[in-house]
């Protein structure tokens, strides 16, 4: 198999890199800290018609927004936290443990709450039917996992380290290896979907999705740390990644009632 020729109409990486550098420079001169991704970030081409042009409207959470959906043992099979045993055979790639804690803005654990992940396989291919990357599918890997946090807010998945994959944002565009995470807090306003990255990825500087977070310290919060204490003898490498949710808005007394 040979590499497919790039479509001529796609812009080169240099164009995108120059745009991202200009946005970084402009940001550094504002002096305002932006710790969440910009919704209007033109280098991510698909965002052009999909970002609100009006400012988000300030709202104080009320009623149902002060509570989150509740998930329990009946919602999840504990085996769903191990992505290496799902399809009757061993998936190919670097077996790895990803673990950490989910806490709120006050550092309190988010207990008994749902964590969902999805990812590409070791070759950088999703089982999704729209993934056209000509890398092999792994018959023993779906790349989907779920778990509930424990009483300390802890989560833990055993998986295969995903590969980077190409996308059509521009010519020779590659996403840094990542795992998609979906998280709930104890309030609806804490809902978040994000991506966890692996340390030292050479693609960070080239990737518009990662670079859409303009504050460098905030970006780095998406990068897991290699942890030799999580690594298991002759079995799996280990990474630690903690997640901090916004809020809470409910008072501690209301929390006790929950």
């Amino acid at each position: 198999m040979t590499a497919p020729p790039p479509p001529a109409e796609l812009e080169p990486q240099e164009t995108l890199s120059a745009e991202m550098a200009a946005l970084r420079d402009a940001y550094e001169h504002t002096g305002v800290e932006e710790t969440q991704p910009r919704l209007d970030y033109p280098p991510y081409r698909s965002s052009r018609l999909r970002h609100p042009t009006k400012d988000l409207h300030h709202a104080d959470p009320e009623g149902v927004e002060l509570w989150a959906p509740c998930f329990g043992e009946r919602d999840i099979d504990p085996l769903e936290a191990d992505l290496t045993i799902q399809d009757g055979g061993e998936p190919i790639g670097e077996r790895t443990v990803v673990t950490g804690r989910v806490v709120d803005g006050e550092g309190r654990p988010v207990r008994r709450q749902l964590v969902e992940i999805w990812q590409a396989n070791a070759g950088g291919r999703y089982i999704h039917k729209r993934d056209q990357h000509p890398a092999p599918l792994d018959p023993h890997f779906t790349g989907v996992g779920r778990c509930l946090t424990d009483d300390d807010g802890g989560y833990r998945f055993t998986t295969i380290k995903p590969g980077p994959y190409p996308w059509r944002n521009h010519r020779n565009a590659w996403r840094p290896a990542h795992i998609h995470f979906s998280l709930f807090g104890s309030e609806f306003t804490q809902r978040i979907v994000t991506q966890m990255y692996f340390p030292g990825d050479p693609l960070f500087g080239l990737d518009p999705i990662y670079q859409s977070i303009l504050d460098p310290k905030a970006r780095e919060r998406l990068v897991a740390a290699y942890d030799h204490d999580v690594t298991q003898h002759e079995w799996a490498t280990g990474y630690r990644w903690d997640i901090v949710l916004t809020g809470p808005h409910r008072t501690p007394a209301e929390q006790e009632d929950a």
Binding site: G105, G107, W118, Y126, H128, T194, A218, L222
Partner: peptide, 20 residues
């Protein structure tokens, strides 16, 4: 002390086999 929240990222194009 309030901690800085983890940034969000796009759900991307490949969530259909995971979230639904």
């Amino acid at each position: 002390m309030t901690r800085s929240a983890t940034p969000g990222q796009t759900v991307g194009p490949f969530f259909h086999y995971a979230l639904p």
